[in-house]
């Protein structure tokens, strides 16, 4: 009988796999670019994880898939990333509050009760504003590596204003800031502000609990985190590995399935 449980989160940019043991403790995790087929990537990562642990398929009691690619993955069950995110955060922090998740393609605000029950949530409109993709395009326009945005933005002296939400128009705004001589740091600070303002406005849809956890790949960006703290007027808690919390939630759901059956 298997005693490990796997959560697979196939996002638009990154695929995350988390394995927990029978006590729900984190046993292993890995991430990779989703690329063309997130499903194949997820399967490869899972196989590698198992191999590293010296385990086989038989040791996996159940798998739950989440994220955009969840429907294609051969899991025991698929659960939306909102529910998984809430579960993952509740398991790590235990308390009720608000989760702000900014991923590659969308951003979400999730209001949760103790135990991880979702009370309400809001997601971005059908555009890239306020998402990782927005940051990626702006980084491209400034010829900055995506992972350097945060540190650079923190060095800003003044914040350039990026008023357009449309990624295409914002990009041309960035370019016109460049041509008017603004520093990359100041422009990037403006870019981070733009993402933060957009996401902060979503919190008024759900209501904001002062205990806010910031997750998703963008949570590693210090510039956005700082801008978001300013926009919300409260400090953020950022998990050590902010991108894997939804996959962790999925793994915990996998464990529930098994309990239900057992």
């Amino acid at each position: 009988m298997g005693q490990y449980y796997i959560g697979v989160d196939i996002g638009s940019l990154t695929t995350k796999v988390v394995m927990v043991d029978g006590d729900g403790k984190l046993a292993a995790r890995a991430t990779g670019r989703s690329g063309y087929s997130g499903k194949d990537v997820a399967e490869r990562i899972t196989a590698r994880l198992l191999e590293e642990k010296g385990l086989g398929q038989k040791d996996v009691a159940a798998t739950v898939a989440t994220g955009y690619g969840r429907v294609t993955y051969p899991a025991d069950r698929e659960v939306s990333e909102i529910t998984c995110q809430a579960r993952g955060i509740a398991s790590q922090f235990g308390s009720a509050g608000t989760v702000i998740d900014i991923g590659g393609q969308d951003s979400k605000v999730i209001k949760i009760l103790k135990g991880g029950k979702v009370v309400d949530f809001a997601m971005n409109d059908k555009c890239a504003a306020g998402t990782g993709r927005f940051l990626e395009v702006m980084a491209g326009a400034l010829e900055v590596r995506l992972e350097d945005i945060g540190d650079l933005a923190l060095q800003a002296r003044g914040h350039c204003q990026i008023s357009s939400f449309c990624t295409v128009f914002a990009e041309s705004e960035v370019i016109s800031h460049v041509s008017s001589g603004a520093s990359k740091a100041d422009i990037l600070a403006g870019v981070c502000d733009s993402v933060a303002v957009r996401v902060a406005s979503m919190t008024s849809r759900t209501g904001l609990d002062p205990e806010v956890v910031f997750t998703g790949g963008v949570a590693r960006n210090k510039g956005v985190a700082a801008a978001l703290e300013k926009a919300l007027g409260c400090p953020l808690t950022i998990p050590e590995e902010p991108e894997i919390t939804a996959a962790l939630g999925a793994a915990l759901f996998a464990r529930d399935i098994n309990k239900g059956q057992g």
Binding site: Q161, S163, F165, S204
Partner: peptide, 12 residues
């Protein structure tokens, strides 16, 4: 005032 405001009460 100038700038793009998006209050959550109204759709985009």
């Amino acid at each position: 005032s100038p700038g793009n405001a998006n209050p959550s009460e109204l759709p985009a």
